[in-house]
Design a protein around this nucleic acid. Structure first.
Lengths: 196, 196
DNA sequence: TATGCTAATTATCCATTGTTAATTTTTTTT
DNA sequence: AAAAAAAATTAACAATGGATAATTAGCATA
């Protein structure tokens, strides 16, 4: 049976990919739907898989030394997720990956993906592109910590992700910015005061 | 004439590379020596090149809105440097890359390197390894901003780079940690008080 | 609508950081 | 060795952030 949702999702992965390129992936990829609050990966997980968010929102969080959840990353539609611990660091996941909304995922075993990509130059090119994008975003984020104050960081985050603000609880955004939810609340107030 | 220094340096790039693999690179790579304070790349630079530090120490810095230098990265022996603005973001460099010590560099044009790598699977594997390493370090650094206080960040930095502390002025390390030199000085004092 | 749960805000207090400037220490240059 | 320059420390003060607790707002559900 033809899975049109899958096809549409893969098409969004990269317009440079032909239908033929995508077909190879289609055969091996699986779909999964997560309800809000459900976990894609738990701490200690070892499933070496690559995920693509067709629809929805996922956060990564870990428990700090006090046992509190700290959100480190957010991903949404059309983004590729790999668990770095498992894929790159060869260790079990230190993070939980949790759906913040009902989320549609396409996923594929990493080794299988490796194998497919190694036989398809266009996919290889595309993988490189995705990796570069992830690196680009990581570097930008580091720069935001080095060069900006928490307030400036929040303003930049809002500019870059105006729609996200309304989908993600502030406390998670505070974590992402490296501050406490209480402090974020004060920053928001400070900004609204300045506007007047 | 045989350039033994070059050969030795390339050998250090990756033990998985055979002499044959390295020879291909050797033909196209050039050497360069930077005196302390000399710049490898200036702001606005566009030379698409990949650098390998055979010996020495390099910092990346940019000028903030007040015109002050802010150091964002450090690289030392056996590390690969790419200017992200030029290589990944297709824009002229926003950073200066400056040698903090007398530094020996091997460098190669990025497009030439691409071409060589595309014909040599082992080099391709190795490039992937280098890229993953850079990503791994970037992610660790982001986590340090999200999960740790400045004091904890400094302690972790010292643990991870015990020798660097003596080679790099504190003010650059402060920038890297996202704090001011004055604050770093106070943190150092606090730590030394606690030890007693 | 009332109830309960969670998130966000506010208040209080204390710790840390940023800013600026003066002082001391270290390094480099003459 | 002396002088000059740069880096690090210290001090003083203001601004901001963290921790905790109380309050308010928003939302879901009985």
């Amino acid at each position: 049976m033809i899975d049109f949702e899958k096809i549409k999702a893969f098409y969004r992965i990269g317009k440079s990919l032909s239908f033929g390129d995508v077909q190879v992936l289609l055969q091996k990829a699986q779909r999964k739907t997560l309800e809000q609050g459900e976990c894609l990966i738990e701490e200690g997980g070892t499933k070496k898989e690559i995920y693509f968010i067709a629809k929805g929102l996922v956060r990564a969080f870990k428990l700090n030394s006090s046992g509190e959840e700290v959100t480190t990353s957010l991903w949404w539609e059309n983004q590729v997720i790999g668990n770095y611990d498992i894929i790159f660091f060869s260790q079990s996941s230190q993070f939980y990956f949790e759906a913040l909304e009902k989320t549609e995922i396409l996923f594929i075993d990493y080794e299988v993906l490796q194998h497919i990509i190694s036989r398809n130059p266009k996919l290889e090119t595309h993988r490189k592109f995705v990796l570069h994008e992830i690196l680009r975003q990581s570097i930008k984020r580091i720069e935001s910590f080095v060069l900006l104050s928490p307030e400036e960081r929040y303003i930049e985050f809002m500019k870059a992700n105006p729609k996200l603000i309304h989908r993600v609880p502030d406390k998670h955004i505070a974590n992402i910015l490296g501050i406490t939810p209480v402090s974020l609340s004060r920053i928001r107030k400070r900004i609204s005061m300045k506007k007047k």
